[in-house]
Design a protein around this nucleic acid. Structure first.
Length: 91
DNA sequence: GTTGAGCGTT
């Protein structure tokens, strides 16, 4: 299982589109596009989980830094999610 | 616009 981060995405992209991109290179366990909770606007990045290690690497290699909507998107292995379960107004 | 919650009043 590989957790993948995809940033600098097109803001018109949806979770289905994201999943599609990665499924072109292997099996996709889950695809999520991060968006604002209230407005629903895309935040321009998302995550994809792929069960097959080599397929995930292939997808990253193929999609990372590729030209899309006039920009270069960023794709790499995701870092662990920060723990925000204690609330949002710390600090 | 670049590393994930959720959207209600404990």
């Amino acid at each position: 299982m590989v957790n993948i981060y995809a940033g600098n995405l097109a803001f018109n992209m949806t979770e289905a589109d994201l999943r599609n991109m990665f499924e072109a290179h292997g099996k996709v366990d889950r695809a999520s596009l991060v968006k604002d909770s209230m407005s629903g606007d895309s935040k321009g990045f998302g995550f994809v989980e792929m069960p097959n290690d080599k397929e995930a690497k292939a997808a990253i290699a193929a999609l990372n830094d590729m030209d899309t909507q006039g920009r270069k998107m960023t794709v790499n292995e995701a870092k662990p999610k920060a723990d925000r379960s204690e609330g949002r107004d710390r600090y």
